[in-house]
């Protein structure tokens, strides 16, 4: 039985979200992805207060950094400081290759830092592979 992977994507740009969805589609995996447009909306999804939400916690959270209202770093901070979420697997997917952002993300314990554009075989291959591995581990009998 193929396990459905729960992915929460926090991304304010619709086209970027579509791009990621297309890339995931090519991987032949079963997944359910909810897109939140900013950090606040992501918290609502995790809380179950959003119209779309998962029955359990997501298997992974993909977070953009530059977003309106609550940015990715603030969201990560909240997640790490909340008891029931602090073990969540989080990835940063961003256009920013600033050293400051990378360091901040590492301090907050991200599983990977991927620089857009999000493409298979791109320079973010290592992080991407790690993500796939994680999903495979979760998927177990895939």
């Amino acid at each position: 039985m193929n396990k459905i992977i729960r992915i929460l994507l926090v991304e304010d740009d619709q086209l970027d979200a579509m791009d990621i969805r297309r890339s995931l589609d090519k991987l032949n995996i079963l997944y359910k992805m909810i897109v939140a447009k900013n950090g606040e909306e992501a918290l609502e999804v995790l809380n179950g207060n959003h119209e779309e939400h998962f029955d359990e916690l997501p298997d992974m959270v993909l977070i953009d950094i530059n977003m309106p209202r609550m940015n990715g770093i603030e969201l990560l901070n909240t997640i790490r400081n909340t008891e029931e979420w602090k073990e969540l697997k989080c990835f940063i997917i961003t256009t920013s290759d600033e050293k400051v952002d990378k360091e901040r993300a590492n301090e907050l314990g991200v599983s990977g830092y991927i620089i857009k554009p999000f493409k298979v075989n791109s320079s973010s291959l290592d992080s991407f592979n790690l993500m796939i591995d994680l999903m495979n581990m979760k998927a177990g009998s895939l």
């Binding site: 579509m18 791009d19 530059n66 554009p117």
Partner: peptide, 17 residues
Amino acid sequence: SHDMKTPLRGIGNVVTW
């Protein structure tokens, strides 16, 4: 330049699609 990256990439993505 940072903010302009996203829409540009968006255009590129749509063309590719």
